[in-house]
């Protein structure tokens, strides 16, 4: 264990059972500062379960989770979000009929200053629209005509962009992305992968859940391979091939002896 910095997330011995099914079986998890950590695993291996336990969507039965060295116990994703942990869900969690600006701020709207905001609880729409426009511009996504246009008028890639921009704008600790390229075409996937690298360049670590090996190997700094409810190993994509990774996660090949991971 030769680590210089405290990991952003460190989870040890996480267990989650649903009746007779053990979704997480004494699993460990580690996310380091500034990295893109891909989480891969076969269907049913429990990769979503472990990530859900980290972001508060499920409460683990056993085990401890440390965020920046401090133990936490989230009971809902909202608590995790309040700590600066953002999640980009596979279904994006956007409200189609609301505008881009409204969507970026759902659940954390800005109110007007003074009595209008305090007593009439009036929203500061100009401020919200400006912030949304700035964030989208930063990520090179301001190809949309208007920040007020409803999300349902956007393409799949643009919607993904709005969801990523929302996460990047508010995340202070890290971002979890669940299959961000699964529903996208070739070109749009490329855009999302570039976005992931942009976000990492800002120093925000990312947990990337994906089935897409080429995408994983392209952007990940380390790969967490999940098998039968626990972490099998973490590998460096530079040292292994995609076939190795697939062999590990399906059990066709023994994992390498673990060092510091």
């Amino acid at each position: 264990m030769t680590q210089t910095a405290t990991p952003v997330v460190q989870a040890r011995g996480i267990v989650k059972r649903y009746g007779h099914v053990t979704a997480i079986d004494h699993s460990d998890f580690e996310l380091r500062a500034g990295e893109v950590l891909a989480v891969i695993g076969d269907n049913g291996a429990g990769k979503s379960s472990i990530v859900k336990a980290i972001c508060g969507a499920t409460v683990p039965d056993q085990g401890e989770i440390l965020i920046e060295g401090k133990p936490v116990r989230f009971t809902s994703p909202i608590e995790a979000r309040d700590m600066g942990i953002e999640i980009v869900y596979q279904n994006l969690a956007l409200s189609p009929a609301l505008s881009i600006a409204d969507n970026m701020f759902t659940g954390r709207e800005i109110r007007k200053e003074g009595w209008m905001g305090k007593y009439l609880r009036m929203l500061d729409k100009p401020a919200m629209e400006k912030f949304a426009r700035d964030k989208l511009t930063e990520l090179g996504l301001m190809t949309v005509q208007s920040i007020k246009q409803p999300v349902e008028t956007l393409s799949g890639g643009q919607r993904q962009g709005v969801a990523v921009a929302r996460a990047a704008a508010f995340a202070t600790k890290f971002i979890i992305m669940d299959e961000p390229t699964a529903a996208l075409g070739v070109k749009e996937s490329r855009k999302v992968l570039e976005l992931i690298q942009d976000v990492r360049a800002r120093g925000i670590p990312i947990i990337l859940i994906s089935h897409n090996m080429p995408h994983v190997f392209e952007v990940a700094d380390r790969i967490h391979i999940h098998r039968l409810g626990k972490r099998l190993c973490t590998i460096d994509p530079k040292d292994y091939t995609m076939s190795d990774a697939v062999a590990f996660m399906t059990g066709a090949k023994e994992p390498p002896a673990q060092d510091a991971a």
Partner: peptide, 11 residues
């Protein structure tokens, strides 16, 4: 619009 999405986005 979409209750599940609203839930996930923190409402």
């Amino acid at each position: 619009d979409d209750k599940e999405a609203a839930d996930l986005s923190g409402i």
